[in-house]
């Protein structure tokens, strides 16, 4: 066989094998084990210390494109917060679909718990202007969001009356694509001192390690792997979470199941890299001869 041909293999063959590798675990899940890492434990352990007197803000800073990676994260974090009865304020800074993601996830998770809107949680909706509303919330959340996502006045909600600004918030969690997660870490944490954690797509995870190491973030969930680790911690710690994720329709959507796909595709890519290098050295040897 011509080594040159194998070395410059038609990329469609690679695409086909990746597609097959992604399909198989969807049809027949493998159930590979998940080991939680320190950046994920950082956020989990922080939330584990919070209770009904505390409040957490979740900023939905992603759109439908990152949904497969970030929705399981959103669901797991919301479940953790609601199990611990922590009050939750949801906002959206990402213009293209952030608020839709927030509505979907809140609708999905809030019905699993006995919660009162405006008291236990609130969806404040989208605010345009990127950094401007983020900074303004340092003075007054109510001034930035006088009405919630459905136009209801927030000054009538006890949650907004009690949580005035970042001083009353224990952690801000940004589920982010693009640059917004960085703004929370290097702008809001730096200026207001509030703890920040970021859940991001796997591709942007490397840049956040610098912020994590410097203490500007307390936790990091990178891609589907981060989400699966969070689910694992939650399932191991709370029986009610185990029950939730045990339901077939939830198990299908979980990051732990998704990790099967990621694992197989990674193995295929590694196999291709090894194959490519083998062919490369074989070619070099034949050229030397």
């Amino acid at each position: 066989m011509d080594i040159q041909k194998l070395l410059y293999i038609d990329r469609r063959i690679i695409y086909l094998l990746v597609a097959i590798g992604a399909l198989i675990p969807i049809i027949r899940p493998i159930g590979l084990p998940v080991v939680p890492t320190a950046p994920v434990k950082g956020l989990f352990n922080k939330i584990d210390t919070l209770g009904p007197d505390d409040a957490v803000m979740i900023s939905f800073d992603y759109g439908p494109s990152s949904e497969p990676e970030l929705n399981p994260m959103a669901a797991a974090i919301l479940r953790h917060l609601f199990i611990r009865k922590v009050r939750v304020l949801v906002v959206a800074i990402f213009p293209l679909g952030g608020v839709s993601m927030a509505i979907q996830q809140l609708e999905r998770v809030s019905q699993e718990f006995d919660l009162q809107y405006g008291v236990d949680y609130v969806n404040l909706g989208y605010k345009d202007g990127g950094q401007a509303p983020m900074k303004a919330m340092g003075v007054s959340i109510h001034d930035v969001f006088p009405a919630d996502v459905d136009g209801r006045p927030t000054d009538e909600m006890s949650l907004i009356q009690q949580v005035v600004n970042y001083d009353d918030i224990d952690v801000v969690i940004s589920l982010a694509t693009g640059v917004i997660g960085e703004w929370w870490a290097n702008l809001i944490n730096a200026q207001f001192g509030v703890d920040v954690a970021v859940g991001c797509t796997a591709v942007s995870a490397p840049k956040y390690y610098a912020y994590l190491r410097s203490g500007q973030m307390i936790g990091l969930l990178g891609g589907l792997k981060g989400a699966s680790e969070y689910e694992k911690l939650l399932i191991d710690r709370y029986p009610e979470a185990r029950e939730l994720y045990g339901k077939p329709e939830e198990a299908k959507k979980s990051a732990i199941t998704g990790m099967d796909v990621q694992s197989i595709v990674h193995v295929i890519i590694i196999a291709f890299i090894i194959f490519g290098n083998t062919m490369y050295f074989a070619l070099r040897r034949s050229q030397r001869r």
């Binding site: 690679i14 597609a19 890519i269 291709f272 490519g276 290098n277």
Partner: peptide, 14 residues
């Protein structure tokens, strides 16, 4: 996912 696979195959050579 597909593009990463093809780019990695091409780029990661020792």
């Amino acid at each position: 996912a597909f593009y990463v696979a093809s780019a990695a195959y091409r780029a990661f050579r020792a």
